[in-house]
């Protein structure tokens, strides 16, 4: 998953979704400490910006950011040890999609059965955190509380954790969780700073928006899963087929066996190749930075991480006329096709 997507997800869905799980318990207990600070510094009450309120919230969010980044690192490392195959990644994405779909439908109160998509933290843990948060007013408390939020992940966070596992890279996993949690921070800070009552209002008015956004993200995740298993049917593939149908009528059949790997995917999206003879194609990258560099061709059991700039040859054995081979990036984005329909 792209880091910007992770950040924006945190900023919108993640921020709002996590408020539902964490704000009530943690922001309200943080507010307990904030109240103590306010009482202790009532002389500052007229000042617009209240550092005594902002400081513990900031420390809480900082600890949360660090804790989740480390968690992302560990999940990415676990993913690299497991060496997820495209099929395993596909199953992971489909599972994330179904999980988010269930949570989105739960938030829309479609049916009571969707409540079972929630992973509730055990009572002893929430009890411990709640009581610990009311112990003392030192700055160590918000740091400790922020760290403990890794035990209270909301639905979107759980999905992001699965995505971190799917990166199969400690650095990417850490970066993904960092971007996501950073995105959740502004809203969390605002709600905590401007009094916890706001969280109830936010929850009430934005639950539906969160639910709909979550459903959209669920479909994106399912789409990635379908692309990774080489399914001929997926939302983005259907969209691409429309785009290609239009562009083919303008440009005609592609003549070169070169695929340009850009930040936005593979060009041409559909490459027509000769049938019944071995062919070689070249992946050409030029300062390409997205997951398009990590190309997966499930039907040929081919997976290659391309250099940011360069040319990599890909030999394909002879294919029967009419064969269509789907490929995508390792995240299931940018679905594209090799079509063997040319005569020599």
């Amino acid at each position: 998953m792209d880091l910007i997507v992770a950040f924006v997800t945190g900023l919108t869905t993640g921020g709002l979704g996590c408020l539902a799980v964490q704000s009530g318990l943690l922001a309200s207990t943080l507010a307990y400490q904030v109240e103590q600070d306010v009482l202790a510094h009532s002389a500052d009450a007229s000042r617009k910006f209240k550092p005594h309120i902002a400081r513990p919230i900031f420390l809480f969010l900082l600890a949360k950011l660090i804790a989740y980044t480390i968690l992302g690192f560990l999940l990415g490392a676990a993913g690299s040890v497991l060496q997820l195959t495209p099929l395993m990644s596909a199953i992971l994405y489909l599972a994330i999609g179904i999980f988010m779909l269930g949570n989105g439908l739960r938030m829309l109160n479609v049916h009571p059965v969707f409540r079972y998509f929630v992973i509730e933290p055990p009572s002893f843990l929430t009890r411990y955190i709640r009581r610990k948060s009311k112990d003392g007013t030192s700055l160590v408390t918000p740091l400790f509380m922020g760290t403990l939020t890794i035990f209270l992940p909301c639905g979107v966070t759980q999905a992001m954790m699965a995505a971190a596992l799917g990166t199969s890279s400690p650095v990417q996993g850490a970066a993904l969780m960092f971007a996501f949690i950073l995105g959740t921070s502004p809203l969390f800070f605002s709600v905590s700073y401007f009094a916890t009552r706001l969280s109830a209002i936010v929850e009430k008015h934005f639950t539906r928006i969160v639910a709909v956004t979550m459903l959209v993200l669920a479909l994106v995740s399912v789409d990635s899963g379908l692309n990774l298993i080489g399914s001929p049917v997926s939302f983005s593939r259907t969209f691409n087929s429309v785009v290609v149908a239009v562009s083919d009528s303008v440009n005609g059949v592609q003549s070169g066996f070169v695929i340009n790997v850009t930040d936005d995917g593979y060009r041409p999206i559909v490459l027509h190749l000769p049938a019944d003879t071995p062919v070689s194609i070249e992946w050409v990258t030029e300062d390409t930075q997205t997951c398009a560099r990590s190309v997966v061709v499930p039907g040929l059991d081919y997976r290659e991480i391309l250099p940011p700039t360069g040319r990599v040859r890909f030999d394909i054995p002879a294919q029967e006329k009419g064969t269509v081979i789907n490929y995508t990036c390792s995240m299931g984005m940018y679905p594209s096709q090799l079509v063997f329909d040319l005569d020599l």
């Binding site: 539902a20 799980v21 009530g24 318990l25 938030m107 929430t126 009890r127 709640r130 009581r131 929850e203």
Partner: peptide
């Protein structure tokens, strides 16, 4: 309406005298 509600309710065990545990 959400998991947060369960946590809110469990928080009553710190407020009400005579409560040993709320799940």
């Amino acid at each position: 309406s959400c998991p947060n509600c369960a946590m809110h309710l469990e928080g009553l065990e710190d407020e009400l005298p005579g409560v040993k545990r709320i799940n």
